[in-house]
Nucleic acid binder design. Sequence first.
DNA 1: CAGACTGCCTGACAATGTCAGGTTCACCGA
DNA 2: TCGGTGAACCTGACATTGTCAGGCAGTCTG
Lengths: 199, 199
Amino acid sequence: MRRQETIDEIVAEAWELSRANGLANFSMRELGTRVGMRAQSLYSYFGSKLEICDAMFLDGNRRLLETMRAETDGFDITADPTGTIEATARGFLRFCTSDPVRYQLLFQRTIPDFVPSPDSFAVAQEAFDLAIAPLRAQGIDDQGVDLFTAVLAGLAAQQISNDPGGDRWERVIPSAITMLLRELCPNLYPTPPSTRSQP
Amino acid sequence: MRRQETIDEIVAEAWELSRANGLANFSMRELGTRVGMRAQSLYSYFGSKLEICDAMFLDGNRRLLETMRAETDGFDITADPTGTIEATARGFLRFCTSDPVRYQLLFQRTIPDFVPSPDSFAVAQEAFDLAIAPLRAQGIDDQGVDLFTAVLAGLAAQQISNDPGGDRWERVIPSAITMLLRELCPNLYPTPPSTRSQP
DNA sequence: CAGACTGCCTGACAATGTCAGGTTCACCGA
DNA sequence: TCGGTGAACCTGACATTGTCAGGCAGTCTG
């Protein structure tokens, strides 16, 4: 299908421009030029600029889904629950910090008037469910999951907006995860003697 | 000073419009009409639209500063450290969730090409330092502060973007704070028996 | 009273997202 | 072979945007 290829190319180019100039901070004319056509011709593929954003949203969530799947693949939830949880958490954070603009689109309500389509949203939901599956498997309740997601979201947000490209909050990940596990599954993760440092 | 009053009115109206339509999602013409003049006349008060954003940024941070001051006022850091920390954390989160658009401007890099002026940034820095003073007073190190701010940022972000107007993550605040205090100042906050629930 | 300053105006500009209406060309049934 | 259909792209035009340049009334200052 030539058409689908063109659509994919438009989305890829939109990502490129967003990474360079800021999320959705490109003109239709510029995007059109990049894919070899006039701005108006883009409208035969997408109904509006926001629809392009929705396609990017969908694309980003598909990649998240892949990433989370790949991350949990090597682990056995029942055999090594804490290992699985740590891996998914790390994988998620790496996913976020490796592409700030994508993070902004997927996890922050930042584009005015943009609302994900039901289809895209469904993929987002699926990715989320997969990401927290290891937590559910440990019997962590809703509030526990909310606490967990809040901490991860916070680490990603701080890392991206206060130390982009650096590792200031990345270095906090180990203590954050052990802290969460101690709080949420004390049976698996009994409080050790009394030091906080981590090599 | 009539001039200063007009400036304040412009900023106030810009907040109003942002709350209604999304951050900075208003036209100069619309803003001008609201304050009784043409768009072009706004340029005798601000050099550009981004300068208006900067004024909003400054305004928001001043309010944050006030809020944090008011919040810590009733507490004695040395006499009641955990109480002070809890109060500032709660105050900060209330500040964030009570005005999502303001939160977006102050804590998320969301407006393309917007960079705070040195003056505004200084106020932001001051507010931040005040907010974490109780943590410093407990001898919490840089990494500990980063962990703390990440958790607070995450709670605010999740509450705002996933349950705006609700209290889903607000209800997690107590466990989050005790979790942090147990992690960061184990001497003050020894791990109690072994329950996590909190009324 | 002359001149400067203040506060707002009008006019115009380029850039933007988007609509309406071509034009070219491959393909397909009769 | 002809007529039709649809895909892929075009040009032209529109209202809306942020912003610049310059003008005009009033107040203040010398």
